Computed example of a mutant assay.
Amino acid sequence: MVFFLTSVLTILLILIFVSFQFFLSGKFLLWFFNKVSKGRYRIHWEGGGLHFPWLYFRIHKFRIFFPGINNTDIIEITAKEIRGRVSFRNMIMGRILVRQCDIIELKSSYINRQPSEQKVELLPKRKLVVLNNTNIEKGELYIEDHNLTPIYKILLSEIFVTNLNMDCGCPMSFLFQSEYGRCKLGEKGRLFVEKSSDSKGNITLTGATWTDLAGLKVIPVPILNDRIDLQAKFENDYLNDVVNVRGTLKNSESGDQYAQELLTSVESEDTKAKASSFQLQINWTEYALPFDLALKKLLLEIFDKLKIKGVVGFTIHTVTKGIVNIFTRS
């Protein structure tokens, strides 16, 4: 009797395992994802799906394409290889946690046609979809925003990230929670991010302009077209869900005398350093926004916090403060 029950239980467990593995197989998942998309996107890859029960996956030639029906955004994401693991415990709790993921030759093209404010509600709830310890090699991201006049275009290339951590409900979080990252921004910009401990780190941005970063061509201020040198230190306060940032911004070109005087026409070196310093606190509940909207909000808040003297500085603060308010209404 014991042998019979043991045999039945074994067969039952095998059937459960085979059933789970079938529904997690690559062919079934591809069929399912394309079936439920109803034309909103098309997805394809080569290789297996999730391997039960560890939910490890390794796929090749990944591609997902959103054709932009009903004048929505046009998005294409490809990768030579993606491998990683999904947390089973988090999955049965209704959350998606991807761990120890490697993405090789990630390329993304993003043509923005919808106002970003309309896409806030499309983001997943915070802490619902999370990437942990993800590595990206030879990444590239092209962004084209048709909501700005003239059309805003930027290319992020040579992307390399080690131990990326990101809450997909708050995409900008990866800038302050990843171990190391670097990329080329436009033609001359360089962005570096590195953590010195679990909570502290540094961000360096050189060679880019405010216009490059945020598409602020509508503001007729010469300083926005000069290349900048941004150095910042940050500290994550995980308990209060905020990150504190302190840094300096300096003009890296001497061609625009007006811009130079705006940041450096002060008497002492100490005052000169203060003239280009900023300090702010990022509350992640306020930054649960699409990445482009969150980036504009961050850059404009940094610019608004700069200690610039005189009537011109007051004018810049007034203009940028109004734009910050527009970006943060939602």
Rank of each mutant, 00 (worst) to 15 (best):
M1C: 08
M1D: 10
L5D: 08
L12R: 10
I14D: 05
F17H: 13
S19E: 12
S19D: 12
F22A: 10
F22R: 10
F23S: 07
L24D: 08
G26Y: 06
G26C: 04
F28R: 06
F28V: 12
W31D: 08
W31N: 11
F33K: 07
N34K: 07
N34T: 10
N34D: 09
V36Q: 15
S37V: 07
K38Q: 11
G39W: 11
I43T: 09
H44K: 14
H44N: 14
W45E: 10
G48D: 15
L50Y: 15
Y56L: 06
F57Q: 07
I59T: 09
R63S: 07
R63W: 00
I64H: 03
P67L: 08
G68S: 06
N70W: 02
N71L: 11
D73T: 02
E76G: 03
E76P: 00
I77S: 01
T78V: 10
T78N: 12
G84C: 09
G84Y: 12
V98W: 01
C101T: 15
I103H: 08
I103R: 09
I104C: 02
K107D: 08
N112Y: 01
R113W: 03
P115K: 14
K119I: 04
L123T: 05
P124A: 09
K125T: 05
K127L: 04
L128D: 13
V129I: 14
L131N: 05
N135E: 11
I136V: 11
E137Q: 14
E137W: 07
E140K: 15
L141I: 14
Y142N: 14
D145G: 02
H146N: 09
L148A: 13
P150T: 08
K153N: 12
K153F: 00
I154R: 13
L155M: 13
L156N: 06
S157G: 12
S157F: 04
V161E: 00
T162P: 00
L164Q: 05
D167H: 06
C170L: 01
P171Q: 05
M172A: 08
K184Q: 15
G186E: 06
E187M: 04
K188Q: 12
K188W: 05
G189W: 01
R190G: 03
E194S: 14
K195H: 11
S196T: 15
G201H: 04
T206D: 10
T206K: 13
A214G: 14
L224K: 04
I228W: 00
I228M: 08
L230R: 03
K233M: 04
N236Y: 01
Y238V: 02
D241R: 14
D241I: 11
D241H: 14
V243I: 10
V245T: 07
T248V: 11
L249Y: 01
K250A: 13
K250M: 03
A259G: 10
E261W: 01
L263Q: 06
T264A: 06
E267C: 06
D270F: 10
K274Q: 09
A275C: 06
A275W: 02
S276Y: 01
Q279T: 05
L280Q: 00
Q281C: 02
W284N: 09
W284H: 09
T285H: 06
Y287P: 01
Y287M: 14
Y287S: 05
A288S: 15
P290G: 06
F291A: 08
D292E: 15
K296M: 05
K297W: 03
L298D: 02
K305P: 00
L306N: 00
L306R: 02
L306E: 02
K307W: 02
I308M: 06
V312L: 05
T315Y: 09
T320G: 01
K321F: 02
V324I: 03
R329S: 12
